[in-house]
Amino acid sequence: MTLVADPKAPRPPRGGPGRRTTRGNTELYGWIFMRASGVLLLVLIFGHLFVNLVAGDGVKAIDFGFVAGKWASPFWQVWDLLMLWLAMIHGTNGVRTIINDYAERDGTRLVLKGLLYLAFAVVVILGTLVIFTFDPCPAGSPADLLPSFCTA
């Protein structure tokens, strides 16, 4: 595969009167990130879908014990953490681009992006906390709902 010497990355907008012409290379780094994270996400999400929906009994087999069994291993903790962060940054940046394209009023863009970044922060922080503070054997829960290693 021959690489293009000068990939056609997005250029900063042309300056008009009263407009900032550029914000440095932020948009270029975003453009590269979408492609790099996209490749990683393809592997992470296809793996996630295969293990959760195709292997074994698929969606029917998913319950608390199934999740606890997966997160007992650091491998799946790291897998899910990477997937969470990369997918949220990739998705937030994609939706940001769409807001910039279609929301024409400055106020509308500001509100929509505010909501977007709020959702990003809540979901990423909550998801990260859940992965790291998860207790596979919560006290007082019926044993038949818990993974088998809780009673072993």
Partner: peptide, 17 residues
């Protein structure tokens, strides 16, 4: 869907039920 999916999975922190 991802937003919803992280929220539903977060319920493992509430209770198995």
């Amino acid at each position: 869907f991802l937003l919803v999916h992280v929220l539903d999975t977060a319920l493992v922190r509430v209770s198995p039920e």
